[in-house]
């Protein structure tokens, strides 16, 4: 599958897909989407790069090992649950904070622990999907 056109297309598509996935992630709270779907889309972007250019390229695109994505995602999700505990609130209570992060995408992005949680999910899903793709890709040739 190492054809030149596919390679070019995948690299062209990559930023598009990634942006789209992040939009899906952030708008999930209001419209269909969310961390899981966004994560899958992002992973498919990485996977496409992988299929087109080989797993080495995919790994460089990922920046970190998939396990780092997974672990960080899990930690972020846990953190979203633990932050309210530190504030003396119930575990996983949604805490909202305006002001720390400027509202870039107008009112659609709401900084708070649920958002943090969703980002955790997103990272984790990216990690998992790329992990699996790399795994099956490396073992798939036999």
């Amino acid at each position: 599958m190492n054809s030149i056109p596919l390679s070019i297309i995948s690299r062209l598509l990559f930023p598009l897909q990634l942006t789209l996935s992040i939009i899906l992630l952030f708008r999930g709270h209001n419209l269909p989407g969310g961390g899981f779907i966004g994560g899958l889309l992002a992973a498919s972007a990485f996977a496409l790069v992988g299929f087109a250019n080989g797993s080495a390229r995919m790994k460089t695109f990922l920046l970190f090992a998939p396990s780092v994505w997974i672990g960080t995602g899990m930690l972020l999700a846990l953190l979203a649950g633990l932050m309210p505990v530190l504030m003396g609130e119930a575990f996983f209570k949604g805490l909202w904070h305006y002001g720390i992060i400027p509202t870039i995408v107008a009112g659609d992005v709401k900084p708070g622990t649920p958002m943090l949680f969703d980002i955790g999910v997103y990272l984790l899903v990216v990690g998992i999907a790329s992990h699996l793709v790399l795994l099956f890709e490396s073992k798939g040739g036999d």
């Binding site: 396990s67 780092v68 997974i70 672990g71 960080t72 899990m74 930690l75 846990l78 649950g81 633990l82 575990f91």
Partner: peptide
């Protein structure tokens, strides 16, 4: 619940 998962996350990292 949190402690084991926290440990697991650290284990991954």
């Amino acid at each position: 619940i949190v402690i084991p998962f926290f440990c697991a996350a650290l284990n991954i990292l």
